[in-house]
């Protein structure tokens, strides 16, 4: 469902991704591990279309369609979701109205009518419960003054609401305590199905102990140096990257 071919990416004229090749099949969970500066987050931002990430050459197809020519919002509407390592604050915008607006943007692209307010509240309650999110969080401003755990849960909630086919998680485990990690991982596991693929970017084994990957890729200097199954993650955890 996602094919990355010979991808070269520069950021501020520095080459970060070098001839990267990666194939991700439907329903598969791929973990990407690697030391700081190896290009893990760059792949996430490039796939999502962040403006300062320049694709010099290469090709990316999502569900058979060229991804790189699309604007970031079109990539989202086409089923790509990036869970941010540091979710952004939107002062003055209440979480509930924001969530409703992004849901409606996706409905609009499917030529559906905007969601009814009562219906939305029902869904929001249901999905918030799954993540242990209190409803009063939704009357606060998006991510403003949220704890690290609240921010990450809010990302997973959006993932759940938008029903994406490819989910990229950029260090979702950072800033989470053990309990929050567990709740978040359980919620993510519920989102796993045969149609949906995941790229989980992480430094540590601990998230992968809850969400079992089908493949583990080790990144170094902008390309994959080793691929294996989940045992590779345990080995790295014990031995390090070198």
């Amino acid at each position: 469902m996602l094919e990355i071919k010979n991808l070269n990416v520069t950021v501020e004229e520095k080459q970060i991704l070098k001839n990267l090749n990666l194939n991700i099949g439907k329903g598969e969970v791929h973990a990407i591990m690697g030391p700081n500066g190896s290009g893990k987050s760059t792949i996430a931002h490039t796939l999502a279309g962040k403006p300062s990430y320049n694709v010099e050459s290469g090709e990316v197809n999502l569900n058979g369609k060229d991804l790189l020519s699309k604007d970031p919002y079109e990539r989202s509407l086409n089923g790509l979701f990036l869970a941010f390592q540091y979710p952004i604050e939107l002062p003055g915008v209440t979480n509930a109205s924001y969530l409703k607006q992004i849901v409606n943007a996706h409905r609009k692209s499917r030529k559906e009518t905007p969601i009814d307010a009562g219906e939305f509240l029902k869904i929001l309650k249901e999905k918030s419960k799954l993540l242990d999110i209190p409803m009063d969080m939704h009357s606060r401003f998006v991510n403003a003054g949220f704890s690290g755990g609240e921010k990450k849960k809010n990302e997973v909630l959006q993932m759940d609401l938008l029903n994406p086919s490819l989910i990229i998680m950029d260090e979702t485990d950072s800033g989470l305590d053990v309990d929050a990690l567990k709740t978040t991982a359980e919620a993510i596991n519920k989102l796993r199905n045969d149609e949906r693929s995941f790229i989980i970017i992480t430094h540590y084994l601990r998230l992968l102990e809850y969400i079992e990957p089908d493949y583990v890729h080790v990144f170094q200097n902008g390309s994959v140096i080793e691929t294996g199954d989940k045992t590779l993650a345990s080995r790295i955890d014990q031995e390090g990257y070198s």
């Binding site: 962040k50 919002y73 002062p91 938008l162």
Partner: peptide
Amino acid sequence: ISDEQLFYCMQRGLDEEEAQSLIVNGFCKE
């Protein structure tokens, strides 16, 4: 308006105009 805020909203499916108007409306909310 930060590029980070715009990109965040766009990543969730809002086009650039919609993202900007959401952020500006937040700024004026009070």
